[in-house]
Structures are given as C-alpha cells and as structure tokens.
Amino acid sequence: MLEASDAAVVAFGHQPNGCFWEALVRFAWPDTAEHVDCDSEAGMFCAVGKSSDAARASSRAPRQSAVRALRA
C-alpha cells in the first residue's frame, strides 16, 4: 500500500521515486537543501546532513492534513 504522500504524487501523475523527492526538497526547501548531500536512487530518497538541518526541514514538512487536502 502506498503511503499517503506517495498516493498524492501518483494522483497528480508523477512517479514518487527518490529523484522526485530530491527535486521536491530542492524546490520547497532550498535553504535546507544547500546544507545536505543527496544520493537518491530510483526507489530511494537519501539525504545526509546535520541533525539540526533535518529538524529544520521536518518542522516545515507538510502534515498529513495538507496531503489529504491535496488529494481531495
């Protein structure tokens, strides 16, 4: 079963793969993306950085309610 975020991406006609999520991070959080190294592959999103950068990105991530609104 797809996660809610993956299902929302598919509903909009995109493939929720590692490259997609990496591009989204670079688009939505460019200030955080410049502090992490990404090594994504087709089936995996990978970002390596400081825990403080991860906490900052996590605090700005869309919540499940936002994902549900996109799907509606």
Rank of each mutant, 00 (worst) to 15 (best):
V48A: 12
P62E: 06
V67M: 11
V36E: 02
T32F: 07
E3P: 00
S65Q: 13
D6P: 06
P16I: 01
G43R: 13
F12R: 15
V10C: 10
L24A: 13
G43T: 10
T32D: 11
D37V: 03
T32H: 09
A54T: 06
A11T: 06
E34K: 15
S40V: 00
G43I: 02
G43H: 11
H14N: 11
A7H: 06
W21T: 00
P30V: 10
E3F: 06
H35T: 11
S65R: 15
A8G: 06
A23Y: 03
S5Y: 14
F45G: 04
D37P: 00
A7P: 04
V10H: 09
R71W: 08
F20C: 02
S52G: 06
F27G: 11
V25L: 10
A7V: 01
F45V: 03
S65F: 10
N17S: 05
Q64T: 03
A23I: 01
S51G: 09
P30M: 08
Q15K: 02
S65N: 10
N17V: 00
A69W: 15
P30F: 08
M1C: 01
G43Q: 08
Q15L: 04
A33S: 14
A54N: 05
R63N: 08
C46W: 07
D31S: 14
L2P: 15
A11I: 02
C46F: 09
A33W: 04
A28K: 10
A4W: 07
R71L: 12
V48S: 09
H14F: 11
S52E: 09
V67C: 08
A72S: 13
A8Y: 08
L2Y: 13
Q15P: 00
H14V: 01
S40M: 03
C38L: 11
C38M: 15
R63C: 08
A23Q: 13
N17H: 06
A23H: 08
D39P: 01
G13D: 02
K50S: 09
K50E: 05
S5R: 15
A33K: 05
M44A: 03
M44R: 07
A57D: 03
G43C: 08
F27R: 14
A54H: 09
Q15T: 06
A8K: 12
S58H: 13
G49E: 01
